[in-house]
Design a binder for these strands. Structure first.
Lengths: 349, 349
DNA sequence: GCGGCTAACTGAATCGTTATAGTTCATTGG
DNA sequence: CCAATGAACTATAACGATTCAGTTAGCCGC
């Protein structure tokens, strides 16, 4: 037996004395050849351990790969541990699976500001929250479908949730019981990295993170509605939506003397809110009597506990499903605005 | 301007009056042509909106795609929401990123028991926990590297954690304070789907889920060590490691009258343990006085709360890193056994 | 001025498929 | 009996790159 390079469709054809076209048809178009011959081909394929047409060659020839790429704003390492991003991916995968497509994960945060060369293999692109490095998208093959999730990009369908009204709704609910010292915990709102307290001048930077900005706008509108000047409300900024990065900032905040410590925290994400909740409990603060906390996103973690987190639920899984359906052409590629749901837990009843 | 089919390397070469080989070199081997010409080619590429060699053609010609496939035992939809699987993926992505490789997600649970045709595009395979549908692997191109995580497969490197000793250690710790009524909550141990209480005859089925089985063996050894007959310990089985599937079973168990309700739960996963913890708290049971609970895995969720979960930490991220390094040839492909760490939380001090 | 060497570039084969346009041959309707 | 039809199968040209074996031209040393 020779060192046996891989078996190709051509080998199979030669072995059986038929043309390659026929073998190809045996795999792809059963109606184009007699059942008997097809059977013979499939049997011989099994014998020779030929596992079907090679995806590389097939995709070159047909122009389609059955692969959909998801381009994530953050590193994959982060995104895979973030419940919101994971849910999005989960929804995408759910739809792709039913159509025999697979999922290629790409990060928009490459060390060289370049798409990995394998990006052009995909049949379509779902881009998630990619504000800062939008330029990367120029490297993608044009003419191929692309939908954006959680940010805006011209000439493509965009999927959003109603961040501003949702933020307004939860802040309005929280402010109905007037707080003495409300505070906002932002998520990556500043241009320059900053993990800690920020002044008003920093918070009003260009809206380079659409969703955080929209949520903040909603908060401000609620403040105005309750006669609170935005300048009165202190803000903290979190650089990365992880417990590790978030905890020290919250610790500092909770360590303030009783008459300076906020008694209401409007958090930009559930992760932040849950970190605050845990640290506050550890300090012996009573929730919600001493401190009320609201989140944003509606992740499972916040509901499978006591007290449950007061938050706004967005259906990330559904965002993923919709995006996937659009990319596969199962639904028209039109921008969509999904609604959110106020979830009244016990952290801010 | 004609309807402009996509621009190829050949177009670029023709436009510049050079050979395709030279254009190819401009992108792949800068040292093979004069800097001046390279510059001219790159500029022209930009002008024509040519974004570099097509991944499909390149991968056919070179035989490499820079894509590593991960084959997950469960559906992608489930796996992406499971913290343990997510951490594994996260570790894999971390290493692949540094080498310019990307991640293709495949599920071992396809509706037709067949790999998606795009599977053969990958340069290597990392297979996770794929016990039941091992046959699927036969469809993968031979000769390409494959490593297994959390299960055994012949002729390939396998990455495991020391499940049996870890389970022994945590059970031994728990049994040091003699329980009146210990119980085990299993994860998919039975051949037939079964969500609820199981008898001993069902638990001794063939070891078709290596890790669950190994953990159970560890528990049994600890029981023996403390003079407890395996038959004395009631067992419940959970079909899927999610809160939704798990909760009703735990509810039933906790609803037992005081003198029948277990006072120690050895759970096969942190997810199960956390569900039990939450439901027990909701019922007003005191933890650990009325009920002690142990988990397995060491997910973050279990530590960022009070009381913290007593569990065994396995470093899934590191498993992913190791697997990825092996696949990329950065480390020799040798089976590895990782160690775990007993984490003493407050749920079983 | 010549052989030899290197840098810079080219031509053409090749990767493993699929698609298109045939070819062959038995069957059918008129 | 002949033209027309259709089923079953084939030959071959792509798909868009990379690679290998050359070819040129310029330069160096003697």
């Amino acid at each position: 037996m020779p060192p046996s390079r891989r078996i190709t469709l051509k080998d199979l054809a030669r072995e059986l004395g038929v043309s390659t076209a026929t073998v190809s048809n045996a795999f792809n178009r059963p109606d184009q050849l007699s059942p008997a011959l097809r059977e013979r081909i499939l049997t011989e394929a099994q014998r020779l351990r030929y596992h079907g047409p090679d995806a590389k060659a097939r995709s070159l020839r047909t122009g389609r790969s059955q692969i959909i790429a998801v381009i994530l704003a953050e590193s994959l390492t982060y995104s895979l541990n973030d419940p919101v991003a994971s849910e999005l991916l989960s929804g995408i995968a759910e739809v792709l699976d039913t159509q025999g497509h697979t999922l290629l994960l790409l990060s928009g945060r490459q060390s060289p500001a370049r798409m990995p060369s394998s990006a052009s293999i995909a049949d379509g692109y779902i881009v998630y929250g990619l504000m800062p490095s939008l330029a990367l998208l120029a490297d993608l093959p044009a003419q191929r479908p692309l939908v954006a999730v959680d940010f805006d990009i011209e000439h493509h369908a965009c999927i959003h949730v109603d961040n501003e009204p949702a933020a307004y709704a939860i802040a309005d609910h929280a402010l109905a019981t007037p707080p003495r010292r409300p505070a906002v915990i932002n998520l990556r709102l500043t241009e320059q990295p900053c993990n800690g307290r920020i002044g008003p001048e920093q918070t009003l930077l260009p809206a380079n993170r659409t969703i955080t900005r929209a949520r903040l706008d909603g908060f401000y509108r609620a403040f105005a509605n309750h006669g609170i000047e935005p300048g009165e409300v202190p803000m903290w900024n979190i650089e990365e939506n992880t417990h590790e990065v978030c905890a020290p900032v919250i610790e500092d905040l909770l360590a303030l003397p009783d008459d300076e410590r906020p008694d209401l925290l409007l958090c930009m994400s559930d992760r932040i809110a849950l970190t605050a909740l845990m640290l506050a409990e550890a300090r012996g603060l009573r929730i919600p009597e001493d401190l009320r906390i609201t989140g944003f996103d509606g992740i499972a973690e916040g509901q499978y506990r006591a007290p449950r987190l007061t938050t706004v639920r967005q259906d990330s899984t559904e965002k993923g499903r919709i995006a996937a359906r659009m990319i596969l052409g199962l639904a028209p590629a039109e921008s969509q605005l999904l609604h959110t749901e106020l979830v009244l837990g016990e952290t801010c009843p």
